[in-house]
Simulated scan of single mutants.
Amino acid sequence: MNDTFPVAGRERLETAADTQQLGFRLGQALEAGDVVILDGPLGAGKTTFTQGLARGMQVKGRVTSPTFVIAREHRSLIDGPSLVHVDAYRLLGAGDEHAGEVDASGALDSLDLDTDLDDAVVVAEWGGGLVEQITDTYMLISFDRETAVAADPDSSARYVQWRVVHN
């Protein structure tokens, strides 16, 4: 990741457009080999964030939740890195009695992606347990909708907190 995006921070995002804009800013800073983990409950804004990130990276294709396909690859429009958008929850077999025994790099290899992961940016929703096995450094982004809704039940706001993690 280049130095145009802070390595740590926290923002309150009022709308989906605000969430996409933060993703856009990060997408502009990402480089081949970067790994981003998105953590938060269903409906917290992970895919919305990734849509903005994809625009910032200038990649092809509509970004939707990878839940039903496990992973989607979006090629660059500008000769930059591809975006590999992964549903790590399903990839690692969460809920399966053998989930803890899954080799993350083998699971990613089994997706038969056209891109070497070192030449791509990997964004994994529900990625805890995945990245620790495939990289020493990654950005962890946590989405919190509960704090804003507790203060105002009509709020659509979310808090997004991020930091670079070194294993």
Rank of each mutant, 00 (worst) to 15 (best):
A71C: 13
E73Q: 11
R75C: 05
S76V: 07
S76E: 08
L77S: 04
I78R: 09
I78S: 14
P81I: 07
P81Q: 11
P81E: 12
V84K: 01
H85K: 02
V86C: 03
V86G: 00
D87G: 08
A88Q: 04
Y89N: 06
G95L: 02
G95H: 10
E97A: 15
E97T: 12
G100C: 04
G100S: 14
V102E: 00
V102L: 05
D103P: 03
A104N: 06
A107N: 04
L108R: 06
L111A: 04
L111W: 07
D112T: 09
D112Y: 07
D112K: 14
D112E: 14
D112S: 15
L113P: 06
T115E: 09
A120P: 06
V123C: 10
V123P: 02
V123K: 00
V123I: 08
G127T: 10
G127R: 06
V131C: 13
E132Q: 14
Q133P: 04
T135Q: 02
T135V: 15
D136Y: 01
T137P: 04
Y138V: 14
M139T: 15
I141F: 02
I141Y: 01
D144G: 11
E146G: 08
E146F: 07
T147G: 14
V149K: 09
A150W: 03
D152S: 15
D152Y: 06
P153D: 10
D154G: 14
D154E: 13
D154F: 04
D154R: 01
S155H: 12
S156D: 13
V160D: 04
W162I: 05
R163A: 14
R163D: 09
